[in-house]
Amino acid sequence: MASILILFAHPAFEHSRTQRALVAAASNLPGVTLHDLYEAYPTFHVDRRAEQALLRRHDIILFQHPLYWFSAPALLKQWQDVVLEHGWAYGEAGLQLRGKVALHAVSTSAAEFEPEHGNGPTCSVRQFLSPWETTAQLCGMRFLAPFVVHGFRVDTHPEQLREAAANYRALLEALRDGRVDLDKAAARPALNFDLGDFIRPPDDAA
């Protein structure tokens, strides 16, 4: 059983229905540690040693955050700058993250990804995360496609949100239990649809 560290970053969590559903889906899962960065470091003073210890204890590192300006919220960048130091995460002696798996669970506000808005982005979410992908590769980590939840309108049916949350929980369980085909999951544009293509069903169900 692999262990999963969710590094959760959301400066306005109070206002996000989507993220609340995802956090609820990731809570109370054995083998999954949910680490709320904005709650832990309100002043942005990231504790490097504590963060590195957390990383060392887990096999899969999952960054869960909304997409702000096509990137992660500021504290996650700060976390990256402080924690991934030379000689620890990369560089000659930096082997601490080697062999681990990295991926993102991202919510978007959807508007900017909808074709009807005309001036939509020219990239997919996966492409926007390319700095993170490169970082993961530099640290010797396996980078998987992101789990993307496009934002819901206020009037969206709650059923859709529930479905996204359930998929997220299913993905976490499969990652934890080693039922994810990592090669397939790394090659896809995203992990939030057709889960059956890269996740094996649990053994007892098979």
């Binding site: 400066p11 306005a12 109070e14 206002h15 996000s16 229905r17 989507t18 909304p66 702000y68 506000s109 959807a110 508007a111 934002g151 819901f152 309108r153 206020v154 969206t156």
Partner: peptide, 16 residues
């Protein structure tokens, strides 16, 4: 302003 970080047209609940 913190709420505005998150687009209020989308997926927010009651005004805080």
């Amino acid at each position: 302003g913190m709420g505005a970080l998150h687009d209020r047209g989308w997926a927010t609940d009651a005004a805080p």
